[in-house]
Write a protein that binds this DNA or RNA. Structure first.
Length: 491
RNA sequence: GGGCCGUUAGCUCAGCUGGUAGAGCAGCUGACUCUUAAUCAGCGGGUCGCAGGUUCGAAUCCUGCACGGCUCACCA
């Protein structure tokens, strides 16, 4: 313990005094039969008189979060996973145990037995007739009124944040509901959940820089996965027709309100379907989750209300650009695109490929404008090295990205299953990498070998779950939907 | 990595143009058996993020560093 301040010393003193009295404040065991808010709900209709004439016993375990001491009586609130309820300690009821109240601090975890009654303000309260210490709290909790505000402390000591900020506890329950609803939906559609490696000899399946690690016994470098895509498609080759994986990806990129180095990604693949199918499927999935969580498709987000009612517009990427006033003649002319971008204050690095220039313009000019759910479809082939070309326009792919509230929520395409073309696409990526594009894909020989056995035509999609949670819980920072967001070490 | 902002008691925050570091809550002592931001009386609590510099004198001005927030750049 780095610092022992006066407040902690006082609490340690109380701890020692309890032990001197033969009470072990950490060793207690207690089987609570009730929960705070359940009691409040269950007995809400029961009157004071009925609680008197027909007494209700209960037992609770939880943390003391406030206390009002009267000398020979005291009110407090106790908090458990459901919330808080008022409790009442009275000298003539507790008898010998009453002096122990002197040793009870805000933050301590106790178990108690008692009887329900209503105060003169009609608040349902537990009159305690016995209690035990289950854990002594040595550190003072933040102030009851303002709570814990300091953002850094809230992230670093999330446990304290969770104790004192009920909406934070609520948020992560919502995250759990969202993830469960997602799994339920996919299971109901015949998908199986699989686990593929998180440590990859060749990182692939996305455009991103990986984390590198090392396996001592094998004597090889490995990469934390940036996406499970190539392994999931190997499973399509193996004969599974509907698979998904909902787990962590790792990308060695900057940290921001939209990016954490590790984040939760859903990827799912369905054989014998294409990206058009996936658009409807995505509408169905996200509206299912929203209904499960919020019971509505009209969700407040920041200053806006997002209406998830399908169908969502499907706009070709080039049309989206044209709609935003980008001159049509730059779409097919890399030189003009570059000139136009630079004339419009969009930073483009030297040697950026034509498709990437358009992507940059899109991110700058179109993406911020998309508030309501919108599919942007048919991306240039060079942005999508794993996607199938459009039969009527080989420069474009059967790909869509779903945008909501100016953020990319999903990315999907009809999967390229021609091993010869896939090899060619990989070679182009390798060439780009040699030219200095750190995010270009690696050649994955084993993936190509798998395709050579024959992969059924399929559609696949990735959904950034943390961002979906942000959307459905109305948070602007990804750190608010990740329990322990990545921070630099203290000091 | 760049720009802007922040860091003062356990928590939330004041602290002006440089002159002995403050409040509320929490804590301790006492009073009080229906309070709920309980009340009343009294008391304690600080490496002002860290390190330099300017100055008779720095929480305050300057420089550097650390950590955090927002933002820009890249990604989901």
């Amino acid at each position: 313990m780095e610092e022992i301040n006066e407040l902690i010393e006082q609490r340690i003193k109380k701890l020692k005094e309890l032990r001197k009295m033969g009470i072990e404040p950490f060793d207690g065991h207690f089987d609570a039969l009730d929960h705070a808010v359940n009691l409040l709900n269950k007995y809400a209709p029961v009157s004071r008189e009925n609680l008197e004439s027909d007494p209700v016993s209960c037992s609770l375990a939880g943390r003391i979060i406030s206390m009002r001491d009267f000398g020979k009586a005291a009110f407090a609130h106790i908090q458990d996973v459901t919330g808080k309820i008022q409790i009442y300690f009275k000298k003539n009821i507790l008898g010998d145990k009453f002096p122990l109240l002197k040793k009870l601090d805000i933050g301590d975890i106790i178990g108690l037995k008692g009887r329900l009654f209503r105060t003169k303000t009609n608040e349902l309260t537990v009159e305690v007739d016995d209690f035990v210490f289950l854990a002594k709290s040595l550190r003072p909790l933040p102030e009851k009124w303002h709570g814990l505000r300091d953002i850094e402390t809230r992230y670093r000591q999330r446990y304290v944040d969770l104790i004192v900020n009920p909406e934070v506890r609520e948020t992560f329950i919502k995250k759990s509901i969202i993830i469960k609803a997602t799994r339920d939906f996919l299971e109901s559609k015949g998908f199986i959940e699989v686990e593929t490696p998180m440590m990859h000899p060749v990182p692939g399946g996305a455009t991103a820089r990986p984390f590198k690690t090392h396996h001592n016994a094998l004597g090889i470098d490995l990469y934390l996965r940036i996406a499970p895509e190539l392994y999931l498609k190997r499973l399509l080759v193996g004969g599974y027709e509907r698979v998904y994986e909902l787990n962590r990806n790792f990308r060695n990129e900057g940290i921001s309100t939209k990016h954490n180095p590790e984040f939760t990604m859903l990827e799912f693949y369905i054989a014998y379907r294409d990206y058009r199918f996936l658009m409807s499927f995505t509408e169905e999935l996200i509206t299912y989750v929203s209904e499960k969580l919020l019971g509505t498709l009209k969700i407040p987000y920041g200053d806006a209300v997002i209406d998830l009612t399908p169908p969502w517009p499907r706009i070709k990427m080039f049309d989206a650009l044209i709609d935003r006033g980008i001159p049509e003649d730059i779409l097919y002319d890399a030189g003009r695109a570059l000139t136009w971008a630079r004339a419009n204050d969009i930073e483009i690095k030297e040697g950026t490929s034509p498709g990437k220039i358009l992507d940059q313009i899109f991110k700058e000019k179109v993406e911020p404008q998309i508030i309501q759910p919108t599919f942007i479809i048919d991306y240039p082939v060079e942005l999508s090295p794993l996607a199938k070309r459009k039969p009527d326009n080989p420069e474009l792919t059967e790909r869509f990205e779903l945008f909501i509230a100016s953020r990319e929520i999903a990315n999907a395409f009809s999967e390229l299953n021609d091993p010869i073309e896939q090899t060619q696409r990989f070679l182009e990526q390798v060439e780009a990498k040699e030219k200095g594009d750190e995010e270009a894909h690696y050649m994955d020989e084993d993936f190509v070998r798998a395709l050579e056995y024959g992969m059924p035509p399929a559609a696949g999609e990735g959904i950034g779950m943390d961002r979906l949670v942000m959307l459905l819980t109305d948070y602007q920072s990804i750190r608010d939907v990740i329990l322990f967001p990545q921070l630099k070490p203290e000091q």
